[in-house]
Design a protein around this nucleic acid. Structure first.
Lengths: 338, 338
DNA sequence: TTGAAAGCGCTAACAC
DNA sequence: GTGTTAGCGCTTTCAA
């Protein structure tokens, strides 16, 4: 009943060679008699041998597993990043396990501990909190780490970022070129670097086009739907409302659009809108929104490459890769009046 | 420079005991002198000892890891299911690694192979294809499996399902009770069991209320946005269009709503709509949609429990758990005319 | 080119 | 109650 799983010793016996030879064949070591190799492969196949990675990892003192610790799996940004990581990983002989920290520093710490305990080959992390995420346990155990999307202030590690400033600049410039002059900006918390960088880009664009920067048109919010909604309502209620808005994140953009909807206003008809981040799921309410797209897949690929490099060269200096965004310009849908 | 990581032997030496005792303490075995235990814990802490799970797993011939192989990580249904699994897992001493098969049978097979190679403690899978997903490698290696959301026709395993028929019945009954009489149904492919079950429920409700079932009002589509859109347009273009529609999945619901939008029609004003599955992300276009909600979190919890049971009793008969849905009735937002 | 043997870090008999 | 010892399945010197 309780059938044992085949080991290399079973294969070795069947093929009439030593376990060492089986190991060599299965790991494609050069210098094995082709005929022997063939015989080993045959019997390995026949016995349904499947390598025990656990034993292998113990012996090699590392794992063919990467952990991707992500602050929000449901966010399509990360779904796409992870896809990029996976592609690099699998071509480098690694598998990726996905861990969802849910923006929760405790969960994140548990996953970091798990990565250490499992002696993961490497970790790619989007830190829950830039200044509180603690990767010391990883570093202490010499597990390579790459940070993604956010910059870790607690340690110097390889990092992949998106050029938020440039993206925000392009978005704002686009609105200026469309003829808008009272352009507002709804951004995230001052404590989050990306939020600040995006306002910076917005400011720079206005300055470049000699459009006055008005502080009352800049709203720091929370990167969430409700915050975008409230910020937009406040802007609309102001004595001199804006004629266009750059909204620095996808959820806030949806919130802002909901505010317009409430006020019976139409995006890109009554007011110009450019968002940042793709809006997931086909959405009938704004098929025509111009958006700053992030190179999500490439972020993953770069992170994977950095990790692979780091594994090969543990003591090289930390690198930071910054990727450009792309402004996806969409035609405004012509409004059919009633 | 190259500092070695502490092992139980280091802790043992420091505490002046044997490795076995350290192991006992760290695994909470009873019958260890409390004083010794305290000393061990102290030194373990001081040396920054972190258990090597790889070695532990090799010795125990199993892993404290569960794999959740999911057909689409971006789908909020699974995000929530996984959360349920994680909660059960962590209270049973397991960690969950997430694998995204992306509805791709090859990727799925690779993850199954990886789960075998890593000697995972158990696998929870939402099969990419009910009739082609091959879990034989898992069974052969005596790795417990639980199927979720879909029923595996290739093997008898523990399964957690949602009562699709009952949900569809409730949705349709709701529309009848609202006074609608020409109720259409847009469902998924005939090859997918859930799609068929949902039409069945729809039919049953109509029969129960003695509303004639009209085949021209039943559209089999593809569970995707475009399909829902096309199906709805076709229904609207028919000589006798429906006065209400039950749409059997979230993406198709969005597609259907887009079709209404195109035709300048309003859901629940011009035509009654009930959807199936929560729509993710706050969406301004349909805050007021009545929807059949699935008990996603509980699906995960039940799956986790089944897996834990199966690990404890490998040879018990396979069980199928079916969970009820819940009709979330939302007020239609009153339309302000122009 | 191949094999023998050691050992990765841990747990679990077994002996004391 | 605690220690000694063997061994999980693999890779990798080292010797032949």
């Amino acid at each position: 009943m309780e059938r044992r799983v085949a080991t290399i010793y079973d294969v070795a016996r069947a093929a009439g060679v030593s376990a060492a030879t089986v190991s060599r064949v299965l790991n494609d070591h050069k210098g094995v008699d082709p005929e022997l190799a063939e015989r080993v492969r045959l019997h390995s196949e026949r016995l349904g041998y499947e390598r025990n990675e656990v034993a292998r990892n113990l012996r090699r003192k590392t794992t063919s597993l990467w952990a991707a610790i992500v602050s929000d799996v449901a966010n399509p940004f990360f779904t796409s990043v992870v896809r990029g990581i996976e592609d690099v990983a699998s071509s480098a002989g690694y598998s990726v396990v996905l861990c969802n920290s849910d923006e929760d520093i405790d969960k994140e710490n548990r996953y970091i501990a798990a990565a250490v305990a499992a002696r993961m080959g490497g970790v790619i992390i989007s830190p829950a909190l830039e200044d509180r995420t603690d990767i010391a346990p990883l570093l202490r155990n010499r597990i390579p780490v790459v940070s993604v999307d956010r910059r870790l202030s607690t340690a110097e590690v390889d990092t992949v970022l998106v050029d938020n400033r440039e993206g925000a600049y392009a978005a704002t410039a686009h609105l200026v070129e469309l003829g808008y002059r009272r352009i507002a900006c709804i951004t995230g918390p001052r404590t989050i670097r990306t939020a600040v960088e995006r306002v910076d880009g917005y400011r720079a664009a206005l300055r470049h086009f000699k459009v006055p920067v008005r502080n009352e048109l800049i709203r720091y919010s929370d990167y969430r739907h409700a915050g975008g909604n409230a910020a937009m309502l406040a802007l609309l209620a102001a004595p001199e409302p804006p004629d266009a808005v750059f909204v620095a994140n996808n959820l806030m953009t949806l919130g802002a659009l909901a505010a317009l909807h409430d006020r019976r206003l139409d995006a890109s008809v009554d007011i110009g809108i450019v968002g940042f981040d793709a809006i997931p799921w086909p959405d009938l309410a704004h098929p025509s929104l111009t958006t700053v797209l992030q190179p999500t897949y490439r972020v993953g690929v770069e992170a994977g490459n950095l990790l692979a490099d780091r594994i090969a060269h543990p003591d090289a200096a930390a690198r930071v890769v910054t990727l450009p965004t792309e402004l996806q310009v969409r035609q405004a849908e012509p409004l059919v009046g009633t």
